[in-house]
Design a protein around this nucleic acid. Sequence first.
DNA 1: TGTACATCAGTGAACGCGCGTTCACTGATGTAC
DNA 2: TGTACATCAGTGAACGCGCGTTCACTGATGTAC
Lengths: 242, 242
Amino acid sequence: MPMSASLTARARIRAELTQEIKDAARRQLVESGAAALSLRAIAREMGMASSALYRYFPSRDDLLTALIVDAYEAVADATARAEAGVRRRDVIGRWMVTVRAVREWALAHPHEYALIFGSPVPGYQAPRDTIDPAARIPLLLVSILRDALKLKRLSTLEKRPMPRPVRSDLEALGAQIAPDLSRQHIGRAVMAWSQLIGMISFELFGHLHNVIHDYAEHFDYQMRGVAEELGLGEATKARVSA
Amino acid sequence: MPMSASLTARARIRAELTQEIKDAARRQLVESGAAALSLRAIAREMGMASSALYRYFPSRDDLLTALIVDAYEAVADATARAEAGVRRRDVIGRWMVTVRAVREWALAHPHEYALIFGSPVPGYQAPRDTIDPAARIPLLLVSILRDALKLKRLSTLEKRPMPRPVRSDLEALGAQIAPDLSRQHIGRAVMAWSQLIGMISFELFGHLHNVIHDYAEHFDYQMRGVAEELGLGEATKARVSA
DNA sequence: TGTACATCAGTGAACGCGCGTTCACTGATGTAC
DNA sequence: TGTACATCAGTGAACGCGCGTTCACTGATGTAC
């Protein structure tokens, strides 16, 4: 057993350097993207031999995994922090603050966003370590729905016909993460999660270029609509159609 | 002016070889992704000197552009062909066939899909040539809505408050592609387009791994919901909420 | 139809660069007694 | 507290590979008269 003081001495430097490597790697991401992430370039930027990096990460892919996990944790942290600042009863406010926080993190870190929500890096297989961090935001969104239900601020959703395989997937998912929500809500929540990331990706990847100009307002508008369709109505306003 | 016969002789071979190069490039995409697309590897596969490729494409990026344009055209062709097979009055059928065709093309050509709808290739700037092909599917989707309107099979949408900048973007877009549709419908259509690509990307990029198992049924279920929210109701069924 | 000339396709060597990873090594830090 | 030893961090050279692009060239195809 090492003494805690001396362990800290060397181990602290090690932790710091590990961070510095990841920071340099993130800076590199900005310039050339994940596929071109280069250990040699990182070493060059840090002024050390490229072989030294192998004391910290056994291979390029392990560094990539660390970056991916960090990115998931970072966006989830930022989002959870924002969401925690809204009073619990204001479920629509919580929804809007949460989705805005995801978008804002994405705008501030577009390459890390692309790393986790863009096309997978070819030849790279995501290990299990990424599963839990990746689930944090969806779970946060679902927790808002669950609170809304408890607070009686969640409308019932229309029961569209749901084919058996869909039902079985959604019920299994519901049992795991939100046994109190209806299958309609679970289905809607999966869609909402995809809508959130879909909208941000469209903006970031340029698919709305010259179509939408005020992205922030448009995002807000659309996400308010999503909230409504999730049943997060102010006072359970009835929806009409002609 | 060359004789048309002799022109064809050499020019036809040229056209064929250009195709072969793109085919080889597409095969390479599958293995290593767009970022790693290599002229030398293509030349190797084709049994020619790498320098020979420069007679066909002035640079790697030009080849990439050709692949991107081809991919947009291919998915739009496949989709338009499928949509054309449904009788015109069946607007819901047309919607479902169209979105399914996009998904099926994506499943059959995941790397070309990632090329156009995944994260942008770093350091590569998409030229104007890609704009028109990229618009084909959204325009097809909108044409279904317009036909539905003409056939009186399009419900009016609830008028949620629409901030001025959103309205101005959506009205400009509407004026350009569908002057007959309401701004609510235009807004919904943008969302629907993003929902379609968002869902496919989630499936393809593994974000629903172990969550959804029957992707086809789930996609159908969700896209039916999208159709309903677009106002493509069978007989203008009223929606209720508790 | 035949011939002189111009264009085009493809070659192979070269330039100058980058990469991930391994390995034997030195010197510093930490551990056990 | 002091010393012998083990662990760890970092070096620099090397292996073996890949890449995009240029260039002077040969030989075939197409054009103009």
